[in-house]
Design a protein around this nucleic acid. Structure first.
Lengths: 181, 181
DNA sequence: GTCTATATAGGGATAGAC
DNA sequence: GTCTATCCCTATATAGAC
């Protein structure tokens, strides 16, 4: 099993259990690797596993969302791709956001800077495309924040209600939020 | 120290660390009571402590938010009180929502039903006042959901950015969301 | 690379003195 | 009611065989 495959299997554990809930036992069960094998791949232990997960998701975002967002097609089409990317990334709302989950407890102290940068990247990328429509920097930033807030809030509500329609409705609103108001 | 005072000191630990991160040691440090004393008050252990916290927050909501929401004053004024209540409850966005935090990991299995009911109560209370304005049941529900999503999303963004202005902006939007669209 | 076995610390929880 | 002391289990992490 390649390291990428291992990391892929670590991801859902951190997302669903958070840092403290993601025990090495659970990580072991999820990967099919015994504890000692995990420590072979991640000599920095659980902290390094979490880092790898964050990095992996960062790469995923870059290729599946940010890159298409910068492609030379009409902005409306790019936003459709954005929505599809978000839907897939969060598994229609069923998968918690690693950013929201890791900003709690012990993990926050360990990863706060990385999380902040990751969120800043999100907001910048979204702001950029909004600015293309002739909107001011300030207003573009606000719309980007509103969009991300809605997504994050939808994830919480889906988790509690098990109603993924809420997530669908939330992401369907993204075009209005970003392009008009 | 009264039981209510003890519970009050348990609350922030569960909110900031989540269920698994809220270790009995941390709960002991936060309350100033040794572990054995905590177990005297909560014979059901940590699970019962979490239950007490959820119940306590439920009561808090009832008296500080839901009750004023039903008082016989103009709807706009009630919504101002609602916003003040939310601002205080979430400490201007600095305090995570127990609902969002406890819907993760092990805690979700233990408390899912309670969380679902708690959220349902929120959505119903908000829907009620929206319906008063002559809006359909369906539309009122949607507006209530949108308002709660925005708040939950704002809490995540504030946690990561440390920018409480985002929360202020979010709650300032509540009147528009509930009363118009 | 992956395993079994094990070390050490901290988790939740209880007994019994005061 | 609160404490000290302690129990057992699980958590993170490592050693060393294969």
């Amino acid at each position: 099993m390649s390291k990428q495959e291992v990391i892929n299997k670590l991801v859902p554990v951190f997302r669903h259990y958070g840092y403290e809930g993601a025990t090495v036992s659970r990580l072991s069960a999820a990967t099919g690797l015994k504890k000692a094998s995990l420590y072979y791949h991640f000599q920095g232990g659980k902290e390094q596993m979490a880092e790898a997960v964050l990095e992996h998701i960062g790469d995923l975002l870059e290729e599946s969302i940010f890159l298409p967002l910068r492609s030379p097609i009409p902005i409306e089409e790019r936003i459709v791709i954005l929505i599809e990317g978000i839907d897939k990334l969060y598994e229609s709302g069923r998968a918690p956001c690693v950013l929201a989950v890791m900003s709690l407890g012990e993990a926050d102290a360990l990863f706060h800077q990385a999380l902040e940068q990751s969120l800043e990247k999100w907001l910048n990328e979204l702001s950029q495309i909004v600015e293309e429509t002739g909107v001011s920097k300030k207003e573009a930033r606000i719309r980007a924040e509103d969009a991300v807030m809605l997504i994050q809030g939808a994830l919480v509500l889906v988790r509690v209600t098990n109603n993924t329609q809420l997530f669908q409705r939330a992401i369907a609103k993204i075009p209005q939020i970003l392009l008009s108001d």
